[in-house]
Nucleic acid binder design. Structure first.
Lengths: 140, 140
DNA sequence: TTAGAAACTAGAGCGAGGTCTAGATCAAGT
DNA sequence: ACTTGATCTAGACCTCGCTCTAGTTTCTAA
């Protein structure tokens, strides 16, 4: 998963935005919030230069955020990684918690999906028969 | 799904809160926002009396909200139902859109789940071997 | 009849997660 | 040298979806 690419060119914030799907605003915001593992390097002129490792980490953040991990947890994770080895148990706990959140969401979604599928079926059938008049009841 | 129960006692807002999992605040808020299909009945003293149909509709709302349907869509749906028969096609479209949102979410979640499962596996294995020192790289 | 719980309204407040603005600076092409 | 576009910082602002407050009124039970 980690892209070990020692002679990769560092990227500008705009390029990272493109690659991660985050806006440049969001990237600066994440940094301010302490969501990055290390400080982002800067050019002489003060511009950010992201390494491939930074981008890899951001891609993980995007994935976790996209599945509902709160920024606070992401921040905690970043802190743990920043502190180096020795806290893997807590990292594991964070991941595990999120895994359970994900399982729960999947169950919720699947349940709702089947309810909707049924309702869609009812509507579609009646629409096809052009007798929608009997469908007034929203709770069908 | 619809509870056809003509001689059911109307419920107070507190009872509805219990049954739907929404707070009484949220119930009043939903009403103000026009998320309910019809106006809620009131007692002589001005208190809300929810019918079973109201509760059924709210339970649907809870399900849809819980899977990410925005309040605006819920409101639109309520409006359509309020206007009675003749707009089933649009109702169907709303449901269909949401169904696709759900499918997409499930795919996202499942993808993330497998990534996490893998990472958890890596962490757990190394923790078990007590050689977590090599796990510094957060992007593993 | 009186206390206490529960409900009422209007409107302010809040937390999450960004987004946008202003005004300045930096870098690249012509 | 000059224009254009990308970045910079600090901080204000925004949307969503509730939540809470204040002050009042209505029930219910003792």
């Amino acid at each position: 998963m980690a892209t070990v690419d020692t002679d990769a060119e560092p990227l500008s914030i705009g390029e990272v935005a493109e690659r991660t799907g985050l806006s440049v605003h969001a990237l600066r915001f994440y940094e301010r919030e302490g969501l990055l593992v290390g400080p982002v390097q800067r050019t002489a002129g003060g511009r950010r230069r992201y390494t491939t490792a930074d981008v890899d980490w951001l891609l993980i953040c995007v994935k976790l955020r996209g599945t509902g991990m709160p920024l606070a947890d992401l921040k905690r994770f970043a802190e743990l990684v920043r502190h180096g080895p020795g806290n893997e148990a807590e990292r594991l706990r964070l991941l595990d918690t999120h895994q359970q959140r994900i399982e729960a969401q999947i169950r919720t979604l699947e349940e709702c999906r089947s309810v909707i599928a049924w309702k869609v079926g009812v509507y579609a059938e009646h629409l096809a028969r052009d007798d929608a008049g009997g469908l007034w009841d929203p709770t069908v």
